[in-house]
């Protein structure tokens, strides 16, 4: 019984951890400014896995964990394509996921951005010529940004998002 009471009043466990990743924080702040000017306030991303080896998913989840905490820069991962500004697609597109990806794309409101995350999503990777895949994401839906890597690290994903925001800003 003492433990739970202690737990309420003592310092929370995560408070003991300190991160100091200045480069990431600076990049993030820049990204936040850009997201604010391009999207009003925040950028909502829907993640779709169409055949990755799951390491890319782990890195995407990592973006939301305490070290990176990407939400502080105005970027959220949403549960439905209907709430999304952008789709982040991972993995070569398998034949078995082709239809699901098309439907997800159609369910996303216009204007929409498609980001291919990881080598396989960019061009199909080693699965390019397999009977079971269509190829990279751009073989199925139009792609605006490709982030290479096997898998790309959280920092690389963040950098790429920043580059995308700057590109959109220039265009408009």
């Amino acid at each position: 019984m003492i433990k739970p009471i202690q737990n309420i009043f003592t310092k929370k466990a995560p408070e003991g951890f300190h991160f100091d990743d200045k480069e990431f924080a600076e990049l993030g702040m820049k990204l936040k400014k850009n997201v604010s000017s391009v999207f009003g306030r925040s950028l909502a991303i829907r993640e779709v896995d169409t055949g990755s080896d799951n390491s890319t998913e782990i890195e995407m989840v990592n973006l939301t964990t305490p070290h990176y905490d990407i939400e502080r820069f105005g970027i959220t991962f949403v549960a439905s394509p209907r709430h999304a500004d952008a789709l982040a697609v991972t993995g070569a597109v398998t034949r078995n996921m082709e239809l699901a990806l098309k439907k997800t794309y159609e369910a996303t409101p216009n204007p929409k951005i498609v980001i291919a995350v990881g080598d396989d999503a960019c061009n199909g990777g080693i699965f390019r010529n397999s009977y079971a895949v269509c190829g990279g994401v751009d073989k199925v839906i139009p792609v605006d940004l490709k982030i290479p890597g096997n898998p790309p690290s959280p920092k690389e994903i963040l950098k790429a998002l920043l580059a995308l925001m700057e590109k959109i800003k220039k265009r408009s």
Binding site: G51, S52, T94, R95, N96, I126, S130, Y131, A132, V133
Partner: peptide
């Protein structure tokens, strides 16, 4: 098997 990439054949 939505992610079937044909690894064994590959």
């Amino acid at each position: 098997f939505y992610k079937h990439r044909g690894i064994e054949k590959l």
